[in-house]
């Protein structure tokens, strides 16, 4: 982390609250982090951890009704929170773009894939029909779609899941965004295809000098492909730091629980996983103290009553939210 490098993305005390018929639902609470140019950060969490809502809030995709967003999101100097739709439209595509989990629903099924990329190019960049088509084919080639000239006229339904996700990535890259938000980009794809897509994202990140936020539930996806990592639980950041530090010197018991309960290929067969009891809390009815306390074997009275703040650990940039952190340098030997 050189101090002179710019922060492309600055998220400060960001909270997203939904008003539901059953009460206020704090999907994201007081999330702060920064991302530099050319950096890839990972966000991991289970379902209900708020990672997807966080991505959509950063993108500015939330509907205006029944939702309250507090804090600030600066992308390349543009304040997303409170921006109007026309302002956001100018900023989408060129500053930030997003790749969604389900490539089938993020593509229009009755529109040829080339046209879907064309449209963006012509509307946003004012390209002519010919040059837009040429650029679209170039983009399809860039994301590794074989015989892209012919595929330009294909409908999304004629492509496999992996190919569709490549098209989605090409659409996202159309206006050369500085920041790419990838929300579970490989969930639902086969392992060999997942590896192809992740490799592609890594290559594109380096080639196009993008910053990437990689959101996933799978620790395996972020382990080798991100430089920093955020662990979320019940809408809050519970641990943040360099990816290596998080894996090797995690302090938050939840991070350890996630690591311990992931099955590994390197384990001998019939390895018993260290499962933690319970499940993520109901966001409508969060405990007063630490949200993880009810499932945590180290929890004390303080954990149940007082919410732990993010506390710096010994490594630079590594913080955790826990009253009774694991001792430093306890790589869990149990797994």
């Amino acid at each position: 982390m050189s101090p002179d490098s710019r922060h492309l993305l600055e998220v400060d005390q960001l909270s997203t609250t939904f008003a539901t018929p059953h009460g206020l639902l704090p999907a994201v609470s007081e999330v702060s982090f920064t991302l530099q140019e050319d950096e890839t950060i990972g966000i991991v969490g289970e379902s209900g951890s708020g990672k997807t809502v966080l991505a959509r809030t950063i993108m500015g995709l939330q509907p205006m009704t029944n939702i309250q967003v507090e804090g600030s999101v600066l992308i390349n100097g543009f304040q997303v929170v409170g921006a109007s739709d026309p302002e956001k439209r100018k900023h989408w595509g060129t500053d930030v773009a997003m790749v969604f989990q389900d490539p089938m629903t993020s593509l229009n099924p009755v529109m040829r894939i080339g046209k879907q990329i064309d449209e963006t190019l012509r509307v946003r960049l004012g390209m002519s029909r010919q040059s837009a088509k040429a650029r679209a084919i170039e983009l399809l080639t860039l994301v590794g779609i074989p015989s892209s000239t012919e595929r330009y006229d294909a409908f999304p339904g004629e492509l496999s899941g992996g190919m569709r996700q490549r098209v989605v990535i090409a659409t996202a890259l159309a206006c050369s965004p500085k920041l790419l938000l990838a929300d579970e980009p490989t969930t639902g794809l086969d392992v060999t295809i997942q590896a192809q897509i992740l490799n592609l994202l890594g290559e594109l990140q380096q080639r196009l000098h993008m910053s990437v936020v990689l959101i996933t539930h799978d620790l395996g996806v972020v382990a080798t492909r991100t430089s920093r990592l955020i662990v979320m639980y019940a809408g809050r950041v519970v641990e943040i730091g360099e990816t290596r530090d998080i894996f090797a010197h995690h302090r938050m018991p939840y991070t350890r629980a996630l690591l311990d309960s992931s099955p590994r290929i390197s384990n001998p067969s019939h390895t018993r996983l260290l499962a933690i009891p319970g499940r993520p809390p109901n966001l409508l009815n969060l405990p007063n103290g630490c949200s993880f306390a009810p499932r945590c074997s180290f929890a004390t009275d303080q954990c149940h009553n007082e919410r732990p703040p993010l506390t710096p650990s010994s490594e630079p940039g590594h913080s955790f939210a826990c009253w009774n952190p694991l001792p430093i340098s306890t790589r869990s030997e149990m797994s």
């Binding site: 392992v191 590896a195 996806v221 382990a223 090797a248 992931s262 290929i265």
Partner: peptide, 24 residues
């Protein structure tokens, strides 16, 4: 072998798989 090579481990020290099974 290709399947195992493409699988991801939750370990930053696991080798990044440069050689990935191509095609579908």
């Amino acid at each position: 072998k290709a399947l195992l090579g493409a699988a991801l481990e939750a370990d930053p020290d696991s080798p990044v798989h440069g050689e990935v099974l191509q095609g579908e």
